[in-house]
């Protein structure tokens, strides 16, 4: 397990969490390099399929970070994300993906330290879980 270098995909909204991650950069707050960020305009844009797609493409963990409830640039896109992701959390378990491999959280544009902490929390979670192992039917389908 010592060689395990988890791949973590993070979907960040343009207005809050992506800014928060940029601010973490500006303050040189280091975090694990395997966390790679994809920018979307709103966390509400994150189709649950994107999360499944990331797992299928080899991600060991997936994060969706949006604006705090009530602060969404698009008023309530993050609430749509919340509803969908709560359902998705239940679904991924059925695919053999541990629930802890997915994380939904809120990071404001100013919360650079929270971003760093959240990134580190996710990294240690995935390190504890080890590499994602898909099995049986799901494994066969994912390989296609």
């Amino acid at each position: 397990m010592a060689d395990f270098k988890p791949k973590i995909v993070a979907f960040l909204c343009n207005w809050c969490s992506y800014e928060g991650a940029d601010k973490a950069g500006g303050q040189k707050l280091n975090y694990y390099a395997g966390i790679k960020i994809i920018r979307v305009m709103c966390s509400g844009r994150v189709d649950p399929y994107f999360v499944l797609k990331a797992f299928r493409e080899g991600a060991d963990g997936v994060m969706v970070l949006g604006c705090h409830p009530g602060d969404c640039h698009y008023r309530k896109g993050n609430i749509s994300a919340l509803k969908r992701m709560r359902l998705l959390e239940k679904m991924i378990v059925q695919f053999g993906v541990e629930r802890e491999r997915f994380m939904l959280d809120w990071i404001s544009a100013g919360e650079s330290e929270k971003f760093q902490k959240t990134a580190e929390k996710m990294t240690s979670r995935i390190l504890n879980l080890g590499p994602l192992k898909l099995e049986g039917y799901v494994k066969r389908k994912a390989a296609q």
């Binding site: 979307v40 305009m41 709103c42 509400g44 844009r45 994150v46 189709d47 399929y49 896109g77 749509s80």
Partner: peptide, 22 residues
């Protein structure tokens, strides 16, 4: 306003978010 929340909600994949398509 281009948030793309509808695109993620569409079950038939008929909505396209410009510059942020599936």
């Amino acid at each position: 306003r281009g948030c793309g929340t509808c695109t993620a909600a569409c079950p038939s994949g008929s909505i396209f978010a410009r510059h942020y398509t599936d």
